[in-house]
């Protein structure tokens, strides 16, 4: 599955995350390669979203560094950081759409501010991105007028507005019906294949993880360290860490390793 030609997109080295004196996770080190679909997984409250917030620069690491395309993101100055940030697309857990704007305006706003496109083209782009997530015809609705799942999908459409190199999605599948969730998996694979985007996804939907991911990190709540990294399918069957195997097998520890 892994081609040698792909370069390292994001490299996290010795990252420690903390809220004040409360350490969430210690000493995380992993690489996200180009075109990876990289999953951040772990039990509830283990700091998955916090790790994502560190990776997009919303939170300062207590220790450690994050590199994008070989350049140091953690120590970069404001202007440099902004140029990185514009190459990201981020979808938040609840969608976090700007509630005073319609869905189309939400997608149009980054385009208006960061590109020289004309109003007509922006309108078309917004409609196209909404169509990609199955929301054609909802352009002029306000976030409060559509359901939570639709908000989430519109959030993904907004994250894709600027055709970013890296898309960060915080629990994109949670709260979606099985069909939408499946469509979303397809969408992610399509985008990776056609645009060459890299995905970093916070998720604990096992079905979806096995369907799309080719790389992952498991955050272990008990040790507050990374449990394992690698392809989740391999981790499920052959990880050295029992917590990882238990998690990926939904607690069913038949464990091929344990049997003689």
């Amino acid at each position: 599955m892994r081609e040698p030609a792909r370069s390292t997109k994001i490299s996290v080295q010795g990252l420690t995350m903390a809220y004040g004196s409360f350490t969430v996770m210690e000493d995380l080190s992993f690489d996200v390669m180009e075109k990876d679909i990289f999953i951040i997984m772990g039990g509830s409250g283990c700091g998955k979203s916090t790790l994502m917030r560190h990776m997009v620069g919303l939170k300062e690491p207590a220790a450690g560094e994050i590199h994008f395309d070989g350049e140091n993101f953690t120590s970069a100055d404001e202007a440099k950081r902004l140029s990185f940030v514009r190459r990201f697309g981020v979808m938040y857990q609840s969608g976090a759409l700007w509630s005073s704007m319609t869905l189309a305006e939400n997608i149009a706003m980054p385009l208006e501010e960061h590109t020289d496109l004309k109003a007509r083209e922006i309108r078309d782009l917004a409609a196209y991105k909404l169509a990609l997530v199955g929301l054609s015809g909802y352009e002029d609705y306000y976030p409060a007028q559509v359901s939570g799942g639709m908000n989430k999908r519109a959030g993904i459409a907004r994250a894709m507005a600027l055709d970013p190199d890296v898309l960060f999605l915080d629990e994109p599948g949670a709260g979606l019906d099985p069909l939408s969730s499946r469509r979303l998996d397809e969408l992610i694979l399509r985008l990776r294949d056609s645009l060459g985007s890299t995905f970093v996804i916070v998720s604990h939907e096992l079905a979806s993880i096995f369907a799309i991911a080719n790389n992952s990190i498991f955050l272990d709540t008990d040790t507050r360290k990374q449990g394992a990294t690698g392809d989740p399918k391999e981790l499920r069957d052959r990880s050295d860490n029992e917590a990882v195997r238990i998690f990926l097998n939904r607690g069913v520890t038949s464990g091929k390793r344990d049997q003689p």
Binding site: L58, L82, R86, V90, Y92, Q93, A96
Partner: peptide
């Protein structure tokens, strides 16, 4: 409420 709904984070990550 924009803050509670992560809308301010969204602004930041779009470079605003």
């Amino acid at each position: 409420s924009m803050k509670a709904n992560q809308e301010i984070d969204a602004l930041k990550t779009f470079g605003f």
